[in-house]
Design a protein around this nucleic acid. Structure first.
Lengths: 215, 215
DNA sequence: CGCCGAATGTTACCACCGTCAACACTCCAC
DNA sequence: GTGGAGTGTTGACGGTGGTAACATTCGGCG
């Protein structure tokens, strides 16, 4: 029993958070999520079995990391919407935020969409909820644009709207991954990813604009 | 020493191939590539250390599996080109072949673009070569279309062509992954993926067409 | 204050894994 | 035939995920 502040207390305080931070740090440093649970524990300065008081599983820990990523991504997207004007501008802002998050956190992004999703079932419901809402946000933007006549989409046609949603999401998701994986880098090596992303987005948006608005 | 044919011979014959097949089978069945090397060996009816005569590493085995996937994908793409006419038709055919491969081999696809690519460096050069050629094929198609006036792209503008290549690849890659991960399924549940893919592709292609060709 | 149960962390242990080294069998070239 | 090269086996090592039994601390209740 030592009341000196510098002595490590038996109880950690917030070990759950500390473990998450350690795991996230390792993920960011190595780009891999096949680290050992024991290494995470070592890093948090705790014995290897302590994590089982906070996570049922190694997989559960990793899922929790992925969840924080989903939440951050969602925050980025909604923040981007707030600062944007017009349907096209909003769409662009969302895409930019999305890609920006992925490029800034490549390993986390790959974890979220690579391992955490071995088919969407069996996911922590929390992750699923965030993804669902993210899609709803995108759909809302496109729908609003369609209603305002900014896009050549019939807002009453569910299918057509869905196609646009899937198209936009696919483009942004694919671009993010190709950029992370450096496949894009070898095609064009842009000063800034943003510039390329903007031009790629243009190609999509041109396809969405009504005839008179194009080019 | 037993000359009876039914006795298992000491030498396997083509163990390398057998190990690859086992690993591929496990991958397809479970959707995961964190299987144990020992399980692969068991499946091939061989002792746990035998694989080290054919693969330096567990990672090497997995990379080899990914390589076969890359080759198959490349084959699918080139085959699709042969049967297609016109720039738009060819582009559509490539996309369809690409998506079809991904959907038919979800785990393999995810392995190829999820784990085998922790940034493109450090990849087996063979994989890299296949990817590079795949991109060249796509670029060739788009360039040809641009030269023929089928797309609103200046064939002399390297950047513009590259943007189109990245856009097309991003869209197809993203769509494939979202479909594999069942994210798309919850947006629209199409009778066939093909129909959705075609409509998504249309959105891209409309953006590529010259003005007079649209809609 | 003192005590007790719940929460949290530790140690000890298990089966299994990746990898290596030493050994066994088989095939082919001479 | 014989001797190496190639291929498969056995056995061992340290590390890992996971569990159980034990230790420590905290918070509430007398």
């Amino acid at each position: 029993m030592n009341t000196v502040a510098s002595a490590a207390p038996y109880h950690h305080g917030d070990l759950r958070r500390a473990l998450l931070d350690s795991a996230t740090a390792i993920l960011a440093e190595t780009g891999r999520w096949d680290f050992s649970l024991r290494e995470v524990a070592r890093r948090a300065g705790v014995s290897h079995a302590a994590s089982y008081r906070h996570f049922t599983d190694k997989e559960a820990l990793i899922a929790a990391v992925a969840l924080t990523g989903c939440e951050t991504l969602h925050t980025c997207m909604t923040a981007a919407i707030d600062g944007a004007k017009g349907a096209v501008g909003t769409l662009r802002a969302i895409g930019q935020a999305y890609i920006g998050f992925g490029v800034a956190n490549p390993a986390l992004y790959r974890l979220m969409f690579g391992q955490a999703l071995p088919s969407i079932e069996g996911l922590p419901p929390a992750v699923l909820a965030v993804l669902t809402e993210a899609r709803a946000v995108l759909r809302g933007v496109i729908l609003a644009g369609a209603r305002a006549g900014a896009f050549a989409i019939d807002p009453e046609d569910e299918q057509e709207v869905s196609v646009a949603v899937v198209t936009a999401w696919s483009l942004v998701h694919g671009f993010t991954l190709l950029t992370i994986d450096r496949v894009v880098d070898r095609e064009v090596r842009p000063q800034v990813i943003d510039a390329l992303a903007a031009r790629v987005a243009d190609r999509l948006i041109i396809g969405l604009l009504p005839i008179q608005g194009r080019r």
